[in-house]
Nucleic acid binder design. Sequence first.
DNA 1: CTTTGTGAAGTCCTTCACAGCC
DNA 2: GGCTGTGAAGGACTTCACAAAG
Lengths: 209, 209
Amino acid sequence: MMLKYRRIPEETIRRLPIYLRGLLFSSQMGYKKVSSGELSEFVGISSCQIRKDLSYFGEFGKRGVGYDIEKLSREIRKILKLDVVRKAAIVGAGNLGSAVLTYPGFKIYNFDITAAFDADPRKIGKKIRDITVEDVRNIAKLKKRKIDLGIIAVPSADAQKTADELVKAGVKAILNFSPCYITAPKRIKVVTIDIAMDLARLPYYMPVS
Amino acid sequence: MMLKYRRIPEETIRRLPIYLRGLLFSSQMGYKKVSSGELSEFVGISSCQIRKDLSYFGEFGKRGVGYDIEKLSREIRKILKLDVVRKAAIVGAGNLGSAVLTYPGFKIYNFDITAAFDADPRKIGKKIRDITVEDVRNIAKLKKRKIDLGIIAVPSADAQKTADELVKAGVKAILNFSPCYITAPKRIKVVTIDIAMDLARLPYYMPVS
DNA sequence: CTTTGTGAAGTCCTTCACAGCC
DNA sequence: GGCTGTGAAGGACTTCACAAAG
């Protein structure tokens, strides 16, 4: 395995989780191995794209055979650093925040939500799952608790302020559920999830009656 | 306005809703006009990207001045066909389905959810919002009701089957909340929303302690 | 002087096509 | 024969840089 240095496209990283899901699906179908062609069918991405993407990180397949599902899954998890447990804190304990707190996806990817904050005095002290909601003014104290990920589930108007506080508290990445653009230092990865953005472009592709 | 024909990049369409949100924000700040440079600050997309994107559809700005917010918003809504009311139906009336049904974003973009289906006899007949949940076996009857958008909120295992039925019932687009890849004829636009995909790539960008 | 609109240049990403290996 | 891994070619998207307009 030579693996000379090449810049890894952001698009490749975006696709790795899709492959992971395709591999899970394959394994549930009873397969032990898959070829890039078969995986392509399951995930809707061309087989040579799949091979190229994987080639950035090593040689995981056997020519004439394909990929060992178990082994490739493990490799992708390692590439995405999903094998490390990350501590997360959520700000905003309203409907959205509560939904996020109970969403099982976080555990699957090794996120451990260990703190929740809100500005509403009626919510402070309340227990959601096994977490007691704290006063939003105490975010600064997170620094000692070594939180990796900050989750924003507050109204748009407070989103940037919350992001700034999370950055000060030392988070490495931010997951933003508020429908707005957020600025943060370059070293901090910000991902914004906004269903409305996907919704709004659907009609463009729909013929008018 | 010459506007010679050029293929419109998919990426441009993806950004139009973001501009729309930036314009809303500008108008809420009390502005009447914005330059591409100002809008760039609000949405985190370069000013020449913004100008190029808009240039695919016409000349909406005034040189030396910028864009009239009201007018540009209207134009983008028209481009995205957000000015037409679309009828939507949702399949799956569980937690996710109920949440989707009550999500206000649909109304904003002129989607009118007029039907809901579920396979669970205990849910059939129940009322959510102003909609009575129907038996999933009656999806075929949707054809007469001229539904434009089908929303999938069923377990992954049933997603493809549901998609096939929605296609037969004549939908023009599918919004898929199940965490899996779905196939449909090319004329039908499928958008899959899966938070887990965004979650799973976050750790890659986070330095390990 | 400011800001748009846009060809040209540059960058990034995908697909092709095939050598290399099983 | 079948399938991977990859340089080279091709295509798509972004940025540059500036003429044109207010």
